[in-house]
Design a protein around this nucleic acid. Sequence first.
DNA 1: GCTCTGGTTTGATTATTATCAAGTCAATAG
DNA 2: CTATTGACTTGATAATAATCAAACCAGAGC
Lengths: 232, 232
Amino acid sequence: MRSAETPLIRSLPLFRDMAEANFDTLMRGAYLQTFPPQIELITEGDPSDFLHVVIDGSVELCAGWNGRETVMATVRPISTFILAATIRNAPYLMSARTLEKSRIVLLPSVDVQAVFDVDAAFARAVVTELAQCYRGLVKHTKDLKLRTSVERLANYLLRKYTAAGAPAALDLVIEKRRLASYLGMTPENLSRAIKSLQAYGVTIEGSTVRISDPADLIGLAKPTPRIDDAAH
Amino acid sequence: MRSAETPLIRSLPLFRDMAEANFDTLMRGAYLQTFPPQIELITEGDPSDFLHVVIDGSVELCAGWNGRETVMATVRPISTFILAATIRNAPYLMSARTLEKSRIVLLPSVDVQAVFDVDAAFARAVVTELAQCYRGLVKHTKDLKLRTSVERLANYLLRKYTAAGAPAALDLVIEKRRLASYLGMTPENLSRAIKSLQAYGVTIEGSTVRISDPADLIGLAKPTPRIDDAAH
DNA sequence: GCTCTGGTTTGATTATTATCAAGTCAATAG
DNA sequence: CTATTGACTTGATAATAATCAAACCAGAGC
């Protein structure tokens, strides 16, 4: 691959510190592809051949069992997904599907592994990234096990609100049924949870969220850095 | 540290392939300590100073929020815990508590990080271990989001049963209230879930589990490698 | 032996969440 | 402009799980 996106990828924490020669090796074997919406990029259970980097658009990671399905995460530019499967050379545990028209870089797993072995800076970056992903998932699990659905919604909204810098109106980016699945509830239940947050100054019209009294909502949500901080 | 446990630690996948000199460095800075039962080894939110290795006994990883608490995992010999916090040099997301009298090796995080930077084999082992932990947590999350409590119990029992080689009687090692918390339910609910599995040939008396008709139980549990396999 | 303790079980009740079935609404294709 | 589609909402109901309270039971200590 040789394209305008190369410097963009280079700027990611995962690739930032590695030697130029090794980065070139990775890029030589890479493919940049554009996918239409609703395309299944990878399927749960398939062998992991590529590390994926979302350049543009958005991708949903989901998992199914016995006819049920749940959204595990949404990946937005610029970031990678299924690093763990690539590293372990094991089958995917989640499926990935484009939500909109998306441009994605595919890095062959063999190249990633080869470069990992010779580039200490890259190795460190992979570890850092993986540890970050792990900790993110620990937080998600705590969210699911320790909170009710209304509490999960309240904290989700506060996280987005804070990340956006406490704006008067906030866009809900994700479809409600997908948000419901991500938060571990049904669309109907989300609809009712939204209604019950009106008592705490939250209004959601279409995809526009307004929080009139953050302090009140915080009183209900009781956010903690050990679940709700992106950094930590 | 210089003790009889050194070769035991050396045999772990995490330390197996590293250079002898680097392993010695790690061991020089290490402490081996014996803790009584019910001791809080680390507390959620504290800075991460040590990588822990359980040599003997057992340790419970748990997390709390707003007066509620949940068991995230149980660590048994020989394995490490809180690798991710050590790597990221970030506060612990979980607390750790001994369940019984336990011997634990403490490796200063600074040493782990220093050796990581100079030993490629160790770096690769850390990545492999972290990826394994990550995938284990993905499975746990899928289990929680896609299955009912009875299904989670059925699959938990089948996993233990299979791992033990399909014995006539199986010991339930963990206390029921802890198992309940791990599986995301109350002790009362677990008690009822056990009862409802009697219809599928499962009897649990005290801590002894008997599965008279595995095929029948499998029909209910519908286990899948993408949730229930330790390896994958 | 007894008593105390804490885990477990059981029953009754409530809370929470899911399911089913209509409806509303907005965007879009024809 | 109308018809269709699919997301979202609402209401009624059912399933699932939590809570509360009371027993039960086994092991530890006396």
